[in-house]
């Protein structure tokens, strides 16, 4: 009897020790931030512009599972404290991520300890400025100006400007109920672009739509957008 009590005690101790020693604590530090050009947020299409988080020292190479920016250019990840390296892969996003001399994406190193905000400064090819979206008589009209940011050898042309409207907050080429495209050839003045699109009937009826202006840059697949606007009517 005495023996079995000892054994029981040993088991309880082993079990309790196992809980503590063997397991890592769950990740609890929140890393958040935005894509920024100077002080302006870069608006993109949801889940289409990926970023990669790497953590070294655990044997395997390769990023943590694929993650992408939200449509307002924000990101968030819950991680364990430690040192991480973050990149946006080449060819992703309507902007230039800083590159190394060898042409690889340069890393942003983050020493994470507790919740932290890290913004990424990037250089977009263009910015959509002064976007104004209004509605009258069932037609959404938008005006904006395109500012060309990158003008050196890396400059790219405009492919088209599009006005998208949707009944929920996700607004892009894929998520829309109506759109109007304006091809680059039809743009006469980059400082004065106007587009309009009729609001189709919405079921169930609602008295508002969300709208964004998107810019497609030739040779890049990700578009850059104006900030989301809710248009009530």
């Amino acid at each position: 009897m005495k023996h079995s009590l000892y054994i029981l005690g040993a088991l309880v101790f082993a079990a309790a020790a196992g809980c503590k020693k063997d397991n890592y604590t769950a990740p609890s530090s929140m890393l958040t931030g935005h894509l920024l050009y100077k002080t302006d947020t870069i608006q993109v299409e949801r889940s289409q512009v990926p970023y990669q988080i790497y953590q070294y020292g655990f044997g395997k190479v390769g990023p943590l599972p694929q993650t992408a920016f939200a449509q307002d250019g924000s990101y968030s990840a819950v991680l364990s404290d430690g040192t991480y390296k973050i990149i946006v892969p080449n060819g992703q996003g309507p902007f230039m991520w800083k590159q190394t001399a060898a042409g690889n994406p340069d890393t942003v190193t983050v020493a994470l300890k507790g919740n932290q905000t890290v913004d990424f400064q990037v250089t977009p090819y263009y910015m959509i400025r002064n976007a104004s979206i209004t509605i009258s008589g069932g037609t959404v009209s938008a005006t904006c100006k395109l500012e060309k940011i990158i003008t050196d050898a890396n400059a790219k042309d405009v492919e088209r400007v599009s006005l998208y409207i949707n009944k929920d907050q996700f607004v892009s080429g894929g998520d829309n109920i109506a759109k109007k495209d304006l091809a680059a050839a039809d743009i006469t003045d980059m400082n004065n672009i106007s587009l309009s699109v009729a609001v189709p009937s919405i079921t169930p009826a609602q008295n508002y739509v969300y709208a964004r202006i998107g810019l497609k840059i030739a040779g890049l697949e990700d578009m850059i957008f104006s900030p989301l606007q809710k248009i009530s009517f």
Binding site: G59, K60, V61, G62, P63, N90, G91, Q92, G174
Partner: peptide, 29 residues
């Protein structure tokens, strides 16, 4: 809807394969 990205033109070489052979370089985009 079908959305084919530049990164879909060439299928991804898995991270496991690259971990086993670091000489493999990643696909573009």
């Amino acid at each position: 809807y079908n959305k084919f990205l530049f990164g879909n033109y060439y299928s991804q070489i898995s991270n496991d394969a690259i971990a086993a052979n670091p000489k493999l370089i990643r696909q573009p985009n």
